[in-house]
């Protein structure tokens, strides 16, 4: 039976045995082109890059629309709202890419692991930002009807209906914003919004909590 005061010796026997069983061909390392290995993109980076490219295109298109219709107040306000929305999402993607790029595996274990979990959890924050457009969807309709149908919705639609559309969605948006958090990813509706990625985010959140307890000496 292992002597608890001698476990470090047992451990070094383990090392000895491992060294005998593993052959390392360091010659291969010299042949590796590290640059090509480093440039491999994961789906996570790809998602963020595509989000950034898409929302930048959207943002610049709305900037162009706003600039060309600035004399009409309804288009100026609606266009500016959509520009802000696309800019906020682009900023989120840039922040995410920065976090991935800055992850240095030579950093202290608790810090690096928390950073990696944050990258995973960030999708929830993305979604929250994207859903902020809900009460302002009328701005989207105003701009789209002008672009596609050349119709000024303000002039043809019932203003009461338009205001009601905005007001009706304010409370659900606030509720969603408050409840759509990493702590609630195991709820069905949150998981549905996250397209089934809820369990992965849940795991990341749990691990994050575990690391925090570990740092505080509770685990």
């Amino acid at each position: 039976m292992i002597d608890i005061n001698n476990i470090q010796n047992t451990w070094s026997n383990h090392e000895e045995k491992l060294e005998k069983s593993i052959q390392l061909n360091l010659e291969i390392l010299r042949k590796i082109n590290i640059k090509s290995a480093r440039s491999r993109m994961t789906s996570l980076i790809l998602i963020n890059v595509s989000t950034l490219v898409f929302y930048q295109m959207v943002m610049w298109y709305f900037i162009y629309f706003t600039a060309t219709h600035w004399s009409e107040i309804q288009f100026l306000i609606s266009g500016s709202l959509l520009v802000t929305w696309a800019a906020v999402i682009s900023y989120g993607a840039i922040k995410q890419l920065k976090l991935i790029h800055e992850t240095d595996y030579a950093g202290p274990v608790t810090i690096v692991q928390k950073q990696l979990q944050k990258v995973k959890i960030a999708i929830v924050h993305f979604l929250r930002m994207a859903l902020m457009i809900l009460p302002f969807h009328m701005a989207f309709l105003i701009v789209i009807s002008k672009i596609w149908l050349n119709v000024d919705l303000i002039k043809v639609a019932d203003p009461v209906w338009m205001i009601a559309q905005t007001l009706v969605l304010i409370i659900p948006t606030i509720w969603i914003y408050r409840n759509l958090s990493p702590k609630n990813v195991n709820k069905k509706w949150v998981n549905w919004l996250l397209q089934g990625n809820g369990s992965q985010i849940n795991e990341a959140q749990k691990f994050m909590d575990e690391i925090e307890r570990f740092e505080l000496g509770m685990a």
């Binding site: 090509s36 290995a37 480093r38 491999r40 993109m41 994961t42 789906s43 996570l44 980076i45 991935i100 992850t103 595996y105 990696l116 990258v119 995973k120």
Partner: peptide, 8 residues
Amino acid sequence: TVRKKYTA
């Protein structure tokens, strides 16, 4: 998956 950006 983030880790894999460094290795191929």
